[in-house]
């Protein structure tokens, strides 16, 4: 089997292409890997992430599934139980709710309830996130449901480098991993990167995107870019802001968060999911516990309002976090 890394050195790749390469390279490396999802074969995926896979690897390993998310998740579990590595695409992460029971009760618990007899190498991935006019059912960030379901690793990359490196790690991890791919980043030109030929990014490690001394902004996904913009605004006001990109929600890199707060003593956590029981709230709670003696001000969070994501631009902007809302929260914490 030939694995040709076609990308020419020096060529920049967008977020989507990085993911596409990861899947193709892992399919070539691992003859026991199977891809399954709605419209991933003939069509090549709703966003084109799986284009070319069917032609290269054939129908047996690239399965166009019926519109049956529970079946897809359950069959992924069965295939993994019987020796396969499965990449399972959700057409939109919103649709994962249709397969919820199979994911949280059958797949996620398998290692636990069999005392480790069965480990399931499954990666579930799909386009997620708001800001694109997708409205209620094509905008969700429902990661909190799954972070609250023991047995799943949950990732949310924000750069092409991480998207590819984390996906490759996930496909070799041996546990069910759920990856939120921010679809607004798929073809975003100004985040394109040159990628090395062969690399992975470790699961469970956050990364510092900007160094600072006065305040820490903790985020993931596209809100990382709001935080970077907010840091620019605050820099002009004389505040030095550090930005941490979690990349991995479960497991959570508390060491990285603690190291940053040890410097800054102040923190704001940002995510685009709704506030109540959202992951930002969990991070704030963990900071309150693990960084108890390091804090100079109460930690705050910036989240979506407790609403679905509405369609009209005015409404969508109103409910979602943005740079201005992050700046406002940061000022409050800085001035405490």
């Amino acid at each position: 089997m030939s694995i040709v890394l076609e990308h020419k050195t020096g060529t920049k790749r967008n977020f989507l292409t990085a993911i596409k390469e990861a899947i193709r390279e892992e399919m070539a490396l691992n003859p026991d890997m199977v891809c399954m999802g709605e419209d991933i074969g003939l069509l090549g995926g709703a966003f084109g992430v799986t284009e070319g896979l069917l032609a290269e690897f054939g129908r047996a390993r690239v399965i166009d599934a019926p519109i049956s998310e529970a079946l897809i998740a359950g069959a992924a579990t069965g295939m993994a139980l019987n020796g396969k590595t499965v990449m399972m695409e959700l057409q939109f992460i919103d649709f994962i709710s249709c397969g919820f029971d199979q994911i949280v009760n059958t797949m996620a618990t398998f290692s636990y309830r069999t005392a480790g007899e069965v480990n399931l190498p499954i990666v579930m991935r799909g386009p997620a996130g708001a800001y694109g006019g997708g409205a209620l059912y094509h905008s969700q960030m429902n990661e909190a449901w799954f972070c609250n379901s023991p047995g799943l690793k949950v990732l949310c990359p924000s750069t092409p480098y991480d998207a590819k490196g984390l996906l490759r790690s996930a496909l070799r991890d041996g546990n069910p991993v759920l990856i939120y791919e921010i679809k607004e980043l798929y073809r975003k030109r100004d985040i394109e990167q040159e990628l090395p030929d062969d690399y992975t990014v470790p699961i469970g490690k956050a990364v510092v995107r900007r160094e600072g001394a006065d305040l820490t902004l903790v985020s993931y996904g596209q809100n990382v870019y709001h935080c970077l913009e907010a840091a620019e605004v605050l820099a002009k006001e004389g505040s030095s802001v550090e930005v941490i990109d979690l990349r991995s929600l479960v497991p959570l890199d508390m060491d990285a968060i603690r190291a940053s707060i040890a410097k800054t003593g102040r923190v704001v956590v940002v995510n685009e999911a709704p506030m109540t029981c959202g992951f930002a709230g969990e991070v704030v709670a963990r900071i309150s516990t693990d960084c108890f003696e390091l804090l100079d001000a109460p930690p705050l969070r910036v989240t979506r309002l407790d609403t679905p994501v509405p369609w009209a631009k005015t409404l969508e902007t109103y409910v979602l976090p943005n740079t201005e809302k992050v700046v406002a929260a940061a000022r409050k914490v800085l001035e405490f």
Binding site: R61, A70, I72, G74, G78, L81, N82, G83
Partner: peptide, 15 residues
């Protein structure tokens, strides 16, 4: 809940 898992087991067995 085990019928979809059975489908996956059977599919993998064929592979």
């Amino acid at each position: 809940g085990t019928i979809p898992v059975a489908c996956g087991v059977a599919y993998a067995d064929r592979l």
